[in-house]
């Protein structure tokens, strides 16, 4: 198992290298630069700025310099947020995004599994149809509709919760953004669990468990649900990586200082280093979560063995 993890981590190095290289050059291919303004800067000033950020050097030299710094753990200074390094920006925003996304993930897993199970156990009843309807709704309605609606209803009309802001991470401030993030995930998890649960309940080994007089709860939870979890786990890898690295829409609407907005703002402003930093974080998360999922698979399913 340890050897497998080591192999996977070593295997991630070329992946990350490719991601870094591709996004570095793609960013440079995009027209414009970080210091283009509506009123162009004076030539001399621009020249000085470019010199400070090494933008006057040939592209390959900039690339090698970036790689060198990256190996030393230095993501460079942000071009737009003056006086901030990319590490500082991501360092302050990432914990918030992780906290929001992580909570949303747990909420989604819990409610998604429960709803999916209930729907599967009451297949083709009104409860089942209700769950399917809610799930379809959750998947189809985009978060830029859900977020302002929630904010309007609970924040403005009912004044039950803050309409926005981080408030140093107080639970009240987290409810609405977490709900917005979790809603589509609840829907997806519920649908996945429902489908695999229906299949599991029809399987021969569940029939065996019933034939041996095991109580229904045990049949469902011990024998059917564990088998039904497997497809959800493989969905979880990419989903977790996406949730934990922040959401532009949710962070913008609720005014939260996560890292999701850096990605879009950085790209629009040609803040090369900030975009690179965000891309690297996302890539690392994807790699790590896919590894975790594969390891989790081996824990859940004894037929899966590494080495």
């Amino acid at each position: 198992m340890f050897g497998y993890v080591l192999r996977r981590l070593l295997g991630a190095i070329p992946t990350l290298f490719f991601v870094v290289t591709a996004s570095f050059f793609l960013m440079r291919v995009a027209p414009g630069g970080p210091f283009d303004r509506e009123r162009a800067l004076e030539a001399k000033v621009l020249e000085n700025i470019n010199k400070v950020f090494h933008l006057d050097k040939p592209l390959w030299e900039q690339y090698l310099r970036y790689l060198g710094n990256l190996l030393r753990g230095d993501l460079g200074p942000s071009f737009i947020y003056r006086d901030f390094s990319v590490q500082e920006l991501l360092g302050s925003g990432l914990p918030i995004s992780i906290q929001l996304g992580g909570t949303a993930l747990l909420v989604a897993l819990f409610f998604g599994s429960v709803l999916g199970c209930i729907a599967a156990l009451r297949q083709n009843s009104w409860i089942d149809y209700g769950v399917i309807a809610v799930a379809t709704f959750g998947i189809t309605v985009p978060n830029f509709v859900v977020a302002p609606l929630l904010s309007l209803i609970f924040g403005v009309w009912l004044s039950m919760l803050p309409a926005g802001g981080w408030g140093n991470g107080s639970p009240a401030n987290m409810v609405l953004p977490v709900l917005t993030l979790a809603l589509p995930q609840i829907a997806i998890v519920a649908r996945l669990i429902r489908g695999s649960m229906i299949e599991a309940l029809r399987s021969d080994h569940v029939r065996t468990a019933r034939a041996y007089g095991l109580p229904s709860r045990m049949v469902v939870v011990v024998h059917a649900l564990r088998a039904a979890c497997l497809p959800v786990v493989s969905y979880l890898g990419p989903a977790a990586a996406a949730l934990l690295t922040g959401s532009v829409v949710v962070e913008t609407i609720f005014g939260l200082p996560g890292i999701g907005r850096y990605f879009v703002q950085g790209a629009l402003n040609r803040d090369y280093t900030l975009v690179m930093g965000t891309v690297i974080i996302i890539a690392v998360f994807v790699v790590v979560f896919n590894l975790i999922v594969d390891l989790l698979y081996a824990v859940l399913d004894p037929r899966v063995r590494y080495d």
Partner: peptide, 18 residues
């Protein structure tokens, strides 16, 4: 499972693989 028990045709799938 106590007084009346069953065995099935499919030995491959009748036991829980997990």
């Amino acid at each position: 499972g106590a007084k009346i028990t069953m065995i099935f045709q499919e030995p491959m799938t009748s036991l829980d693989p997990l």
